[in-house]
Amino acid sequence: HNLTITQGKLFFHYNPKLCLSEIHKMEEVSGTKGRQERNDIALKTNGDQASCENELLKFSYIRTSFDKILLRWEPYWPPDFRDLLGFMLFYKEAPYQNVTEFDGQDACGSNSWTVVDIDPPLRSNDPKSQNHPGWLMRGLKPWTQYAIFVKTLVTFSDERRTYGAKSDIIYVQTDATNPSVPLDPISVSNSSSQIILKWKPPSDPNGNITHYLVFWERQAEDSELFELDYCLKGLKLPSRTWSPPFESEDSQKHNQSEYEDSAGECCSCPKTDSQILKELEESSFRKTFEDYLHNVVFVPRKTSSGTGAEDPRPSRKRRSLGDVGNVTVAVPTVAAFPNTSSTSVPTSPEEHRPFEKVVNKESLVISGLRHFTGYRIELQACNQDTPEERCSVAAYVSARTMPEAKADDIVGPVTHEIFENNVVHLMWQEPKEPNGLIVLYEVSYRRYGDEELHLCVSRKHFALERGCRLRGLSPGNYSVRIRATSLAGNGSWTEPTYFYVTDYLDVPSNIA
C-alpha cells in the first residue's frame, strides 16, 4: 500500500525493539523526510534493546553428524571492536523451508527459537588472519532439518551509529543413524509349514526405512522333555500350542467401542483428552525405555581390526524358502538304536541362519518350516543398504507352526516275539517326523474274553527296548493296539495285532 503524509511529521519514542533503520525507511515511504526535528525521533529510546544489523554474515563451514552440527561463519568486528559482546545463534526444527525470524513471537518477546549466546573469538592483530567464530550444536535429532541463523550482539553506541551483522536463515539436516526397533511384532501360524509375521514401523526411523531383515531359527525343545518319565503317576503330560491366527481386521481397528449394538453396526467412541494424553505418555515412556535398553543392555560386537582377528559373527547367506525346513542338525536320541526319531534339535552355532529381506511392506510369510516346531524370529529395521547396512537392534518374537495331521501315527506293522515265561516283546517304529517329539506310547492289549488293559511306555523305555515287553501273560489269544502321544496330543491307534500265548508248562520236552 502507498502511504503519503502531505502535512505533519513523524514522532517515535520509547520503541526499544524498533531499529532506527526501520524508522528511516518509514520517513522515505511516507514522504516526511526532512520535516522531523532532532528530538522527534529519539536516538536513545528507539532500538536500544534490539540488534540492528546492516551487514550480512556468511557461514564459512558446515559439518553434520547424526546428532551434531558444527558451524563456522566469517569474522565480524565493528569499528570499535570492544562493542562486540558476542553472537546469538538461533535454531529450531523446520520440516519445511518457510521459516521466518519472527515465527511464534508474542507480545512478551518470546519466540519459538532456541538461542545460544556465543563469546567472540580472540581478536588477531592481523586483519587478514582473524579467527572464524563458530559453535557445535549438540543433542539434535537424527535425520531432522533445522533452520539456523546467527547475528551479532553489540553494545549501545553513544554516537548512535547503527552497526551489526546478521546471516540469512539456512537449512541444515542432520545425518541418518540406526533406527529404533520395529514396533509390535506379531507372529502367527496359518499352516503346519508357515508363519505369518506382521509389525509396525519404528517410532524413530532416523532416516528413510529402506528394508527390513527377518531372521528365523528353529528352537530346540526343553531338555526336561527328553529326561522326564511322563508315565509316572502324578506327572502331567506336557503340551505345546501353536500360535493362533490373526483376529479379523475389524476387531483390530483402534479407537473402536468394545460393545456392539445388537441391531447392527455401531460407531466408534472418540477417545477423551485424558485417554489420548495417557497414550502419549505411555508411548514416550516406551521410547525412553527402549533407548535405555539399547544403550545399557546391548553391547556392540567388536569388529575385526587390522591384526587379522576374525569377526566372530557368522556370515549372512541367503537361502531359498524351500530350504528352511531342514535348518537344524538332527541327532538321534540314543545312538545305539537307529530307529528312534531325530527330534532332539541342538543347533550348531556355526550354522548360517536363513533370512529374508523385506522391502516396502511390514509383513512376511515364512514358508518351508517344520510342522509343530518353535521358531525364534528376529526382526531388524534398516535405513541404508549400501555401502553397508545400517540397521536397528533386533526385536524378537516366537511362534510355533501348526501340527501336521497323521504325523504322530505309527507307520509300519507292530511285530512281536514270544519268549519263555510268557513274555512277549512288542516292537514298532517311532514316527519319523512327529509333531514336536514323542513323549510316550500307549499300549492297549486284551486277552479274548477279558477286559482291555493299558500300559504306558516312556520315551526312554522305548529307546532301550525298541518297544516294550509284556510279562506274566496268561495263555490265550491276544490283540494289541499302540498309539503315540506327542507334544500336540495323541496320534491314531494302530491296526490290531494278534498273537497267541501258550502255557509254557505244557511245552513238550526233548528229553527222552
Score class of each variant (00 low, 15 high):
W242Q: 10
V329G: 12
L225I: 10
T373A: 05
R318N: 12
V331D: 13
M427K: 15
Q252S: 12
L487F: 05
A512T: 03
L487C: 12
G368Y: 05
A463G: 13
T307H: 11
E221K: 06
S284E: 12
T303H: 04
R390Y: 02
P238M: 06
P300V: 04
G322W: 13
S341N: 14
R301H: 15
V345A: 09
C267S: 12
T272Q: 08
A335Y: 06
S348A: 14
A381R: 01
D311E: 13
L487S: 14
A394Q: 11
S474M: 06
T347K: 08
V359H: 12
S342D: 08
L364P: 00
Y375S: 01
S284M: 15
S479L: 04
D409S: 10
E389A: 06
A263S: 12
K361S: 09
N255K: 06
L437E: 06
V443A: 03
R481I: 05
L228D: 10
A395G: 13
P312N: 06
D291C: 07
P508W: 02
N421H: 06
N206A: 14
S284F: 05
R400Y: 05
S492M: 11
F289K: 04
K236Q: 08
S479Q: 10
P349D: 15
I366Q: 01
L364S: 13
G472C: 03
T343C: 04
D506W: 11
V480C: 15
E378P: 01
S363A: 13
I410G: 02
H454E: 13
E279R: 12
I418V: 09
S492N: 02
Y212T: 14
H416S: 13
S239L: 14
E224V: 15
N339F: 11
M427L: 08
E281W: 02
R481H: 03
P245L: 12
P300L: 05
D409P: 01
P434A: 06
Q275A: 12
W493V: 04
R483W: 00
D503T: 05
C456M: 02
N339H: 09
E452C: 12
N206G: 11
D291N: 15
Y375M: 09
R400S: 09
S363Q: 12
H294K: 15
E465K: 04
P270E: 04
S341K: 06
D222S: 11
P496Y: 09
V414I: 12
G489W: 11
K271L: 12
T502A: 14
G476R: 00
S492L: 11
A407Q: 15
L277K: 15
A488Y: 15
S203N: 15
E495T: 11
T497W: 09
Y448R: 12
F215Q: 12
E258T: 13
F226N: 13
E249Q: 15
I276T: 11
V480W: 05
I438V: 13
Y504L: 11
L293Q: 11
T401I: 04
E389C: 07
K302I: 08
T401P: 03
